[in-house]
């Protein structure tokens, strides 16, 4: 889903990822004891590891781990109990864990799965553009900063005139240009909102989805017993 995220060789069906993600967070939030929450997360981490999401998990927790530790540490210093701080740490880790099956979905696969599921084309197209263009816009910002450096502009975030003239205006102009070009490109390729779309390469459910689903149901049953 996002740039720089390692994807497994055979990712889960996007809809399976969506369901797993939703259930992971919902059930995790419902668990009131730190031990239960950590057992639940450990079981899921093992399941995702077996399903091929090991590298994705490492990537997610490398980003989120520091933040989670700082937040939990601050909560402890602010007078929270050890159990409370552990719960805070666990809940932040839970957000990371719940994101694992979905952030590794390729945007095109998600768009295809949504179209197959009967989702309106307007939503599938808009979502695809939104996801695809987050890294594009990040690189555009970088380009604008590089252009300023080349021209010798001494940019200061505290100088509002600089921020307005040298960053915001060029960025907004780029956004509008990208939008116009993309709209033209979509229209010239015959995209129509009024007609029902076809999927070039349908996304199929596989045995792996069923197996992971069953194992996940087992983890949920265990969590409910706890």
């Amino acid at each position: 889903m996002f740039s720089g995220i390692d994807r497994p060789r055979q990712p889960l069906h996007p809809m399976a990822g969506l369901i797993l993600s939703f259930l992971t967070l919902t059930l995790g939030l419902a668990l009131g004891q730190p031990l239960n929450l950590y057992l639940f997360m450990a079981s899921l981490a093992l399941l995702y590891l077996v399903a091929g999401y090991g590298r994705t998990m490492v990537r997610v927790f490398r980003l989120l781990g520091v933040i989670a530790l700082v937040v939990a540490g601050l909560a402890y210093l602010a007078g929270d109990s050890v159990a409370g701080s552990l719960m805070t740490l666990g809940r932040i880790a839970l957000v990371g864990l719940s994101s694992v099956p979905l952030i590794s979905v390729h945007p095109t696969q998600l768009s295809r799965a949504l179209t197959q599921a009967g989702c309106p084309r307007i939503i599938a197209l808009a979502l695809l553009i939104t996801i695809r263009f987050v890294p594009v816009l990040a690189s555009e910002m970088q380009r604008i900063r590089e252009a300023m450096t080349i021209r010798g502009v001494r940019f200061h975030w505290t100088n509002l005139r600089h921020v307005y003239r040298a960053l915001l205006l060029p960025l907004v102009v780029r956004l509008i240009n990208i939008s116009d070009l993309l709209a033209l490109s979509v229209e010239t390729r015959g995209f129509s909102l009024s007609e029902r779309g076809t999927v070039y390469k349908p996304v199929r459910w596989r045995l792996k989805d069923a197996l992971v689903g069953m194992a996940f149901a087992g983890v949920i049953a265990g969590a409910l017993v706890l």
Binding site: I122, I129, L137, A138, L175
Partner: peptide, 25 residues
């Protein structure tokens, strides 16, 4: 709503998402 409008709003949404990713952490 026209395709052009949807594309523009989607690009704006991508920019909003990017801003969130940069500022919220």
């Amino acid at each position: 709503m026209k395709t052009r409008d949807i594309v523009f709003l989607a690009i704006m949404a991508a920019a909003v998402t990017l801003v969130g990713f940069l500022t919220i952490p």
